[in-house]
Design a protein around this nucleic acid. Structure first.
Lengths: 248, 248
DNA sequence: CGTACCCTTGAAAAAAATCAACTTAAGTGG
DNA sequence: CCACTTAAGTTGATTTTTTTCAAGGGTACG
């Protein structure tokens, strides 16, 4: 599929775009790029990425490492999310960006994206929206990390991943393939891998999820959401598939 | 002092502005507004603020409340910070914004600020920078909440507040007036007020800080930074006053 | 000078981390 | 195809950290 129409599809998920903005995007030099799993795209303290990308397939993470060696994952980027929008107008990176799985992205030069953002109202608005939604997710994660116990945290993350994956057509409703290890899940939730394991088991024992390897099936959606105090409003999805309603 | 020149001063702290952008700002309808302590400016789930403001004096917080009643403060806004930039392009608020102390702000209609952001390159860049820096702080806070122990967390927050206050001329170097209770400090660090109290005492016992009421004096800056694993780079301050160097 | 509201401190309980095996699963080379 | 190797998952026992509970003590302000 054409790289430009993929980009347009992503942006239209959340924002309306004028004819002019569509033309601008279609003539902009987006190119496909493949990034191998494990690649470090941005390094904390180094320069921002020369190219800014939209994830088409795969999973990337933003993370920070403390002096004492702990790692905190600060964002998960899946299909439709931007890599390194966070540094678009900053000179020095304040965190790492890493490909967790092989990544396929639509890449564009950073300078060109900046120009687009500042010159085209609709495109600018679309980019702003993306950035503000990511900030909203960050606030929810702070709440998760600071004020919820381990079991609630894990359940919350599972709910978020399920909803986001489903919203971009990555997974069947309530099915979830975790591309990461329990250690990485611990880096998301601020827990040790051992404790993540126990919490997953607890959720499974209570009949909220079922697991086979890293495949997680949400058995009791309402129950898991209650266990995770999950309210999807913070994701600012324009069209959340209603339970029972077929997607348009 | 003139409200427009105050706004210009704030924006120039981080971004260069062209002549045209300055003129645009000076002709924009910024007005002074006073907001009493405790006022709720934005309510989670409600509409964004009709006016967007830059804090001139006082302290405001963004926070979320969990279903089980815990509160997490997700951002602290002091002089020069924007109130409700977070919702500039979103339709429903995803968190509360509240005046912690009496607030004096430069307010402007949300729609007008959006137009300014989209029409004037330099102003747009300045606003983007503010938003991205706030997102960077959020990532550091996630790391603090998820991966640092209680004492380190408290020390880190103290360091951040000291640096940010000093950067906008709010406090003498290494002096800090906490306008909040230990309970509120707990809502920042994800700790109980009792434990915040113990951690403050621990930092004091180790000679890193001194307290008299809510006035905190940083006695050993390097020591406190080490205790808090504090590295100010994530604040993206263009001009951090160097120790010993007088501000220009 | 009383009355809130916060701060402080101790003791006990709960949550999560750590330590230490052991099991399973996946991948590799014979 | 199987044995071997390695990484990840699982489980129990123990220790540490943090919360909870409870009782004073200070301080500001009417």
């Amino acid at each position: 599929m054409n790289v430009h129409s993929l980009v347009l599809t992503k942006l239209k998920l959340r924002s309306q775009l004028s004819q002019a903005a569509c033309v601008a995007i279609e003539t902009a030099p987006f190119v496909f790029r493949d990034i191998p799993a494990g690649a470090q795209i941005v390094r904390d303290g180094g320069p921002p990425a020369a190219q800014c990308s939209i994830v088409l397939d795969g999973v990337a993470i933003r993370s920070k490492t403390t002096r004492s060696g702990g790692r905190q994952i600060a964002a998960i980027e899946i299909r439709g999310d931007f890599l390194d929008l966070a540094h678009l107008f900053l000179d020095i990176a304040d965190h790492d960006v890493e490909a967790l799985t092989p990544l396929r992205v639509a890449a564009i030069e950073r300078d060109i994206l900046r120009d687009l953002a500042l010159e085209h109202r609709d495109f600018g608005r679309a980019l702003w929206t993306e950035a503000l939604v990511e900030a909203s997710i960050a606030r929810e994660w702070m709440t998760n990390l600071g004020r919820r116990d381990a079991r609630t945290r894990v359940a919350h993350v599972l709910c978020e991943l399920a909803v986001r994956s489903q919203a971009v057509g990555l997974a069947a409703p309530d099915t979830l393939l975790l591309p990461w290890t329990q250690e990485q899940l611990g880096d998301v939730t601020g827990l040790t891998p051992v404790h993540v394991n126990r919490m997953l088991r607890s959720l499974e024992d209570d009949g909220l999820i079922a697991r086979r390897g890293r495949q997680v099936q949400i058995v009791d959606r309402a129950g898991l959401r209650a266990a995770g105090e999950f309210e999807p409003r913070y994701l600012h999805l324009v069209e959340i598939a209603q339970p029972g309603a077929a997607a348009a």
